[in-house]
Design a protein around this nucleic acid. Structure first.
Length: 667
DNA sequence: AAACAATCGC
């Protein structure tokens, strides 16, 4: 219990008198800022005999509930004479239990008020129950309450009740119940209520009904900012990012009074749909037009900075959060931990983590995942054990991060151990991503048969990622038989993924099985292939640059290409031989200009080299895994340019320095 | 007596 905010304390003190006054006390309780003060004032009321006054008792009951003690409230309520224990008091108690996530306690109270109190719950009791359960994250219980209420013929809620109910239904994803409520709202005549419109949009959005989201919005007559915001969020949830952007611009043009939620929503929308640079731009724009970010905006925008390695942007968000006192917010600090880790500053991530006032499972996972990205498995394992010591229960993401750390560092035994333990000790059933980690872990250790057995014993159908991992390991260890099994599955699961054909063909080539190499090439011609475009980001002087493989639209492209040619000459002199293993990878690009076939990370590094002063560390982020050829090249470049170069790919960090990589060529 | 829109980690 901290010190009350001085202005609320002053406000409160205006209503305290001595001797206590029966008309003043209820006002005092209404504005009472802390529990100890409420208890003290309760004692005063008790001694003076004013506690028996129904208004005094009722206001004290609500003060106790507002300040979070159901125990004191209940004791007070039980001490009240029976006629004073009305549906109002019972409803408040039910709502308070529900709001704390205590669904069982709320149901027990509901029973008790009927049986012992002889009081029937009304619509407000039910609304309080549904909305409380929903707000405390127990949407499922809220829908059960809703169904019970319906079963008892009590479903006559007003606009507020319908809004609460829709919110709960949306969280559970029960579109049919949502439609019934929609119909009810029309009949009850609250369909046009602003809260109901917003709640309907929200519900349809959460239930995956994008068309309904737009329809409800279009049918609403006035431009309510909350419903505009719900529309953006609903479209974002359903991957309709272009439509969301279009409508947001329209809101701006039509002069809708956008608020901080609107701007935060569009930032979140961009981040959730892979438009990180656009998110950064909206974040800038919101501040330019005078809307200050709040403690929700910061964790929304930080993943965008993290995804494009915008360390400077991330740092200024950190400073802003510090100035505004947002660092106490676990969402803000957890997002900062992740941002620093992903921007190459795992030590700074750790400092944030260590100074956090409260941590949840997400904070721990961000830190463990951070160490995993750096291949620092020892630290990841140490964090995991600290987490257990701090009584924080691990969840499935924890084990994904932990197993990934073991995989990156080649800790085969430890990985096996935690995979067994996650289910046996912590009751977390392994899911696809855990099996994928294990297949990679075993595959890298050369235990291909064991990896295959694990896949065969999986309780659900393995996905392409699993088979892809096995195929990759077969490439490393030259296992043709298992490679063919894996490739067969992959050609079925994702026939258009060029990488699988390339891998199998490379395996055949390494065994000099040329007829099979040709057969795979024929297959590649028959199916329309899709290759994900390589894309890299680098932050130079507070600006993030995006470089695309095979795209020469960057304004500095001529200088970049010149630098790459110069690097190639120097590398050859130092004995660099382009790896033949990756040649087929670029087979389609052969006809194009050689320069356009340069991978995006090389373009980013070349741009970094020519745009920063000597010795500056270069931080590059890439959307795919770094290829072996680029990996070798980076080692050479770090050596003769005297630069630290860090490349974060989809898997982990590669920190190149003095001709060596932090991954030890193991990745 | 109660209420709608935006948030962190795979």
């Amino acid at each position: 219990m901290g010190m009350p905010h001085s202005s609320s304390l002053h406000h409160f003190l205006r209503h305290v008198s001595f001797p206590p006054d029966p008309h003043l006390l209820p006002t005092a309780f209404k504005s009472c800022p802390t529990l100890p003060l409420a208890r003290a004032l309760h004692a005063v009321a008790e001694v003076s005999g004013l506690a028996r006054d129904p208004f005094v008792a009722s206001s004290l009951l609500h003060a106790y509930l507002r300040l979070g003690t159901t125990g004191n409230a209940r004791a007070l309520f039980d001490g009240m004479p029976r006629p004073q224990r009305t549906v109002v008091g019972w409803s408040a108690l039910v709502a308070a239990h529900a709001a704390r996530g205590d669904a069982e306690g709320a149901w027990r109270l509901l029973e008790e008020m009927r049986r012992d109190g002889g009081v029937e719950p009304n619509v407000i009791t039910w609304n309080g129950l549904v909305s409380g359960l929903n707000r405390s994250g127990r949407a499922r219980d809220a829908v059960v309450a809703l169904a019970t209420m319906h079963g008892e013929g009590l479903l006559r809620p007003d606009a507020t009740g319908v809004s609460c109910a829709l919110s709960a239904v949306g969280d559970v994803g029960l579109v049919s119940v949502g439609q019934q409520l929609h119909g009810y709202a029309v009949k009850a005549g609250c369909r046009a209520d602003a809260c109901v419109v917003t709640a309907l949009i929200d519900m349809y959005g959460k239930c995956g009904q994008a068309a309904e989201v737009v329809r409800v919005f279009d049918e609403s007559s006035h431009m309510d900012v909350a419903s505009c915001n719900a529309l953006i969020a609903g479209l974002s949830r359903n991957a309709q990012v272009c439509e969301a952007l279009r409508l947001f611009k329209e809101f701006v043009d039509r002069g809708v009074e956008l608020n901080v939620v609107s701007w935060t929503s569009i930032v979140a929308c961009c981040v959730q749909n892979g438009k990180d640079l656009e998110a950064v731009e909206f974040f800038r724009e919101m501040q330019a037009q005078g809307t200050e970010p709040n403690s929700v905006t910061i964790p929304c925008v930080l993943p965008a900075f993290a995804n494009v390695a915008a360390l400077m942007h991330g740092r200024s968000a950190h400073c802003f959060a510090l100035r505004k006192g947002f660092l106490h917010d676990v969402y803000v600090s957890s997002a900062l931990v992740d941002m620093y880790a992903k921007c190459g500053r795992v030590k700074d991530a750790r400092i944030i983590f260590d100074t956090m006032v409260s941590r949840n499972v997400v904070s721990w996972n961000a830190m463990i995942g951070g160490y995993a990205m750096y291949g620092e498995a020892v630290n990841a394992v140490w964090m995991f054990h600290s987490m257990l010591k701090c009584k924080q229960k691990p969840d499935m993401v924890t084990f994904t991060c932990l197993l990934a750390a073991c995989t990156q560092a080649g800790l085969t035994e430890e990985g096996r151990h935690y995979f067994k333990e996650m289910h046996n000790e912590y009751g977390v059933s392994p899911r696809m991503e855990h099996y994928a980690c294990m297949v990679t872990l075993l595959g890298r250790a050369g235990k291909l048969d064991e990896a295959y057995d694990l896949i065969s014993d999986m309780p659900f159908e393995p996905d392409a990622y699993i088979w892809g991992s096995l195929l990759g390991s077969c490439r490393v260890h030259g296992n043709v038989d298992l490679a063919e099994v894996a490739a067969e599955k992959l050609f079925h699961l994702e026939p258009e993924n060029a990488g699988n054909y390339v891998l199998l063909s490379n395996i055949y080539a390494s065994k000099k099985m040329w007829d099979r190499v040709n057969r795979v090439r024929e297959m590649m011609k028959d199916v329309g292939l899709k290759k994900e475009k390589g894309c890299s980001w680098i932050e130079i002087k507070n600006k993030v640059h995006m470089l695309l493989a095979g795209d020469d639209s960057h304004p500095m492209m001529t200088a970049i290409i010149e630098k790459i040619n110069q690097l190639n000459i120097q590398m050859r002199k130092l004995g660099f031989v382009p790896s033949t293993d990756f040649v087929l990878h670029d087979v389609e690009e052969q006809e194009k200009d050689d320069i356009l076939a340069v991978h995006s990370e090389k373009l980013a590094v070349a741009l970094g080299l020519i745009s920063t002063s000597p010795g500056t560390t270069l931080r590059v982020i890439k959307n795919l895994r770094i290829c072996g050829d680029c990996h070798e090249a980076m080692k050479f470049i770090s050596s003769f340019e005297g630069r630290e170069i860090s490349v974060r790919d989809t898997n982990r960090f590669h920190h190149f320095s003095g001709g060596k990589c932090s991954c030890g060529d193991f990745w």
